[in-house]
Structures are given as C-alpha cells and as structure tokens.
Computed example of a mutant assay.
Amino acid sequence: MSTYQIKAVETKKDIIDFYQLPFKIYKEDVNWIPQVRQEVEGVFLKKKNKYFTHGICERWILKNDKNETLGRIAAFINEKKAYTFKQPTGGIGFFECINDYEVASSLFDHAKNWLSSKGMEAMDGPINFGENNKFWGLLIENFNFPTYYGQNYNPPYYKNLFEKYGFKVYYYQLINYRQINDPLPEKYKQKAEAIINDTSFSIKKIEIKKIEKYAEDFRSVYNAAWVTHDNFKEMSMELAISIFKKMKPIIDEDLICFVYHNNKPVAFCLGIPDINPIFKRLDGNLNLFGKFKFMALKLFIKISRANGVAIGVHPEFQKKGIEGAIFTDLAKRLQGNSKYTDMVVTWVGDFNPKMQYIFEDIGFVVKSKMATYRKIFDENVPFERCPIIDKT
C-alpha cells in the first residue's frame, strides 16, 4: 500500500500543481486541448462564481511520498439543486488522475467523505460548480473526434476508474454533428418553408448592440421550454445577461438567431465559433500575453466548425417545423461564404429523447458520447436513472 497525502489547494504552489497535472497525464495525447486556466480558476473564486451565494466548494490534490502530484479533484454542493433529489446530492469535478485505481479511489473517498459530512447522500460527476455548458461529463466514446470549446476530455481509462468505484450512469450526453451544406430532409423542408413564408413569423439574427434585449428573449423562451426538465430552476434576467456577456467576445452574429411570432419570441438557436483550435496553441493560459496571442491567432487560424450551444422552442410552437426553419435560415446565411463547413451541437441528454429525435430528423448524427455519473453512498438504496422528459 502506497503512502499518499491529500491536501486542500490553498497556496500558489498548490494552484500551480493543480494545473500542471493534466500536462503530465496528457503529455502523449494529441487529442487533448487544455481548458482555459483562467476560466477554470474562476469556478473556485467567490468573487467570480455566483454559485458561492448558494453553495460551497473545495478542491484537493494528491501527492505521493516523493511529493509528486498524481491526482486532483473538486467537490461542491449547489444548495438550490442538492435537495431536489431523493437523496441530497452534491457534485465532483475537475478530476484528473494517473491510471491507478488506488489513487483514484483515494480521491473519490476524500470527496465522498467531505460531501457526506455536509449532509449529502450521493454525488454526481464529473460536473461543474456552475452551468452545465462547460466542464460537464465524462467522455466515453470516440476519443478522436475533436472536442469543442468547454467540453471535458479525458483518457479512456477514466471510465473504468469511475465504474469500479461504484459510479453508475445517471444520463448519457449525446454530441451531434452535421455538415452545413447537407440538405434538410424533405419532411422538414416543407414545414420550414411554411414557417418562413408565414408573415406572422420572423427570424432575426442577434445584434450585439442590443444584447440585453436578446438575453431577455432567450430567457423568456428558455423558461417556457425547459420547465419540464428534471430539477428545473427558472432563469433570472441577471443570469441571462451574464451568459450573453460572457459569450460576447466570440459572438458571430450569423450563428445566433431568434424566431418571433407576432413579434413575441418563440424560439432561439445559440451558436458560437469553435475556438478550440486556437486554444490548442495557448497551452490553456489566457493571461495578458495569451490574450494578445489569441487575437493574433484569430486572424490566421480558420475556424470552420460552429458549436450549437442551445436550441429552444416554446412548447406552444413545438412540432410545427420551427427547428427546420432555423436551420434553413442558418444554412442560407452560412452556405457560400466559406466561413463554416460543419456544426456540432454541444450535448443532448438522453433524458430528452424528443430533442434528440428532432436533431436526428434534421440530419444530425451522434459523433461521440459522454456520461454524467452518480454514486449513491448507501449501497442498499436502489439506483435510478435521470427521469425521461415527457415524450409527447
């Protein structure tokens, strides 16, 4: 039995070790792109992460008796969500570990004990102490498909480490892909044209100078469309504006559009350029020098892939062909300008089969798969997967 020390990340040296570990683990992995250090660090800073207003978070590194860092993990409790499950459930994330189950189980035990001491009876992971559009899920299929901005990436052996410890899949995360120039299936083309030719509907791309107006339109549709999701919490205007302002530096107006019916927002499609090819050249550091380098690289690196961050349709307007109208409009703007050739939709949970059917119907195919796992501390408690959203 080896001797390990698990210590909280507190000093500057600890923080350096926390971020240097992945460079050791992925040294020979050409598919790995480092997460932006400043964005990850923001998760752990109370002045930057609003989740600290209703939650707590801690992170640790594990060292051997030679003072070598072999693993890291974070644990957190989102008090707005933790108590909405049958078992109070916390989260773990930012897990990195050498291929050694003893090391991994030591990290999992430490996080579990910390969460249990604070009243939690289960833990999900790997997830984020924040929104689920970044740093969420474990990659389990197709490790050669290029990751998108904000997507977790990990070695294949992580799956075994999680499952050997007793984690079970709470839901799968499907990553969908299609070529921009691929034609829309005929049944959607007809519905889309009907929407486009109906004067009561209009499709408008975002205007950055009116970003707060579009943030409110997004919030309006989101709160109506996501209400049936497990543990849904209504989005505030403050959060909506925050999401759009964070995206602002990389917004391409051609990739974000809204559908209106009699001038009222009924659907949206949020997309951003896939900037991961640029971040691959930055070693994950967006400090002052990194920002200058990023701006310079933007001029020389062609971004050919768009990331679909979210698509939402008000329940009263679903099954009317609006999704097809959105992609028809998107294709018209993007085809012929040689800007983007393909699109990836960040992820769709398998708890939402209706949305997945829509993407498949309009020509998307699943290119890779991730998973969000859950570990219930009491092994006598039956495990249940994430509830399926109503298919009707």
Rank of each mutant, 00 (worst) to 15 (best):
K375H: 12
F85Q: 13
L62I: 03
F268T: 14
L184E: 09
T89Y: 07
I376N: 13
L138A: 09
S236E: 08
N132S: 13
N352M: 06
P265I: 01
V43Q: 09
D390I: 03
I175F: 02
C269I: 01
K27S: 14
K80W: 00
P382M: 04
K168S: 11
L138M: 14
K291V: 11
T228V: 10
L270V: 08
V36C: 12
F18M: 05
G324W: 01
M247T: 01
L174F: 06
G284V: 04
F364D: 10
I322G: 15
N154K: 04
D17N: 15
Q173N: 10
L21R: 06
G91R: 01
E163I: 05
F52E: 01
M235T: 08
N160L: 10
K245T: 05
F85M: 07
F108H: 00
A194F: 10
M343S: 14
T328I: 02
A224S: 15
T69S: 15
T341I: 05
K112N: 12
M120A: 01
N113E: 13
M370T: 06
Q335A: 07
F258N: 11
L297H: 02
D14N: 13
D14H: 15
Y101F: 09
I127R: 00
K7H: 07
Y165C: 12
P249E: 11
L62D: 00
N144R: 09
I322V: 10
I98M: 12
Y188A: 04
Y158A: 04
F258I: 00
Q173I: 01
S220V: 10
L115F: 12
R219C: 10
N49P: 03
D390N: 13
K233T: 09
G166Y: 05
V259Y: 06
N337S: 14
E193N: 14
T228M: 05
K213T: 11
P183D: 13
E96P: 00
N307H: 04
D252R: 06
N287S: 13
V43I: 13
E323F: 05
I322Q: 13
D14C: 04
N160K: 12
G312A: 14
H261W: 06
I250Q: 08
T84M: 11
K7P: 02
V345F: 15
F94E: 03
N231V: 10
S202L: 01
Q173E: 12
E39C: 02
K339E: 14
D252L: 03
D254R: 13
G93F: 02
G271F: 01
R219S: 15
G271C: 10
Y157I: 02
I140G: 06
Y158N: 01
K298P: 04
D254W: 03
G42T: 13
A104N: 08
K293T: 07
P387E: 11
N262S: 12
S236P: 11
E79C: 06
D361T: 12
R59F: 03
